[in-house]
Write a protein that binds this DNA or RNA. Structure first.
Lengths: 216, 216
DNA sequence: GGAAGAACGGAACATTCTGTTCCGTTGTTG
DNA sequence: CAACAACGGAACAGAATGTTCCGTTCTTCC
């Protein structure tokens, strides 16, 4: 029995099916990232497959949305865990932010929220990602460099601001997002000279406020 | 002949018409800010007006979009000019950013671009707003506080990042946007301690890159 | 070799959505 | 009271879109 995750040694229809599996999720991610309301046909077109190849795999549009979003959430968690493995505290914190920005994984969750009924497993993963962001923030503070009034909720919104920047060329998008992430990091890093005497204005967002998107 | 801009002393139908004028643009701004693809009926409903009241004023949806966008552009210019009137250079620069963020006027232009054929007058105003942003940036540099690798193109993207933050309560939205604008300002302000030795990564966006949204 | 089946492409279908028009009504003016 | 301005919202036509279905192609197994 051939391993379905190894597409290389498959031939003909099987190989095509394996390729399509990833082509479809990749296309769906790209298309819905660009326009959360995009029609299913746009996803199929971008993937270079017929519509039936899509409906064979997903029960419907909502199911597709859910899978793509959950996939993004899992990537987020994976990146966070890799960042957490870093030795230096400040490195762990900053590399986390750069990783998420590079992976372009944050806006997925944000823009697609509310367009499908989340599963229980997604809820668990979302909670998990929250815990990870908390731990990363704590390490930032432990390093002594992260300004004291920065909270885990700020991570969400800093990332959201970066994710809003979008250009036709994905690589250019990545570079420019890094530029503004670096700018915000400069404002966060007391070792870079950020004066804390003038604290950030207004309280950070509450959990309540960050969760409203998920309501349908 | 009654002054059409003064609604107070008009009666009956005339007064209603005057109220509707502003109710419709306000509603259109709010609705399209929330969803650039929103149907015309949503604008009418939000304005508490029938559809005919809307079509009496605008030739069609595209015309409405254009007017709302142009109105936003004009507000942008007005805010920039007021900021320019500030005495202190650094004050002029920062107050400009806060003004635009508070007026929630930047994302209008950004999100609606490309959904209508811009007029020549809009092009002129867009050029004008560009010049103003340049002058404001120059004053920032003249104050000696703005880090040297910050360009007018950065203004656009910093504002865009802030505009991406949106919550059900407009006042809360404003507060939180200010929080992240302040964070970026802390990264920009050499007087606040921002170390310039580590420059911002990647070149800023070019005019070309910033203009692609307007293509249809 | 051929029958059965897996996977596919894309036309076809049924809705829903949405921009625009149109008509009857209401209030205003001369 | 006649002409008119403005309005509300039903009606209409056409586009958009989620989903199904059928004929085709390639693979596998007897």
């Amino acid at each position: 029995m051939p391993n379905p995750t190894e597409a290389a040694d498959l031939s003909g229809r099987r190989a095509q099916a394996a390729r399509n599996d990833s082509a479809i999720v990749d296309a769906a991610r790209a298309v819905f990232l660009d326009d959360p309301k995009a029609p299913v046909s746009a996803v199929a077109a971008r993937a270079g497959v017929g519509i039936s190849a899509l409906y064979r795999r997903y029960g419907g549009k909502e199911d597709l949305l859910r899978q793509v979003c959950h996939d993004g959430l899992r990537r987020y968690i994976a990146e966070a865990e890799q960042a957490l493995a870093e030795d230096d505290d400040w490195q762990a914190f900053t590399s986390f932010l750069f990783r998420i920005v590079d992976a372009d994984v944050h806006s997925l969750t944000v823009h697609l929220a509310g367009s499908f009924e989340p599963t229980a497993e997604m809820g668990a993963d979302a909670a998990r990602s929250g815990k990870l962001a908390e731990r990363l923030t704590r390490r930032g503070h432990q390093s002594g460099r992260l300004r004291s009034d920065f909270t885990p909720a700020d991570i969400v919104l800093v990332l959201e601001g970066c994710a809003a920047l979008r250009f036709p060329d994905p690589e250019r998008t990545r570079r420019l997002r890094r530029r503004y992430l670096a700018l915000q990091l400069a404002g966060l890093d007391t070792a870079a000279g950020a004066a804390q005497d003038a604290g950030l204005p207004g309280p950070p967002a509450s959990e309540e406020e960050l969760g409203w998107r998920w309501r349908r």
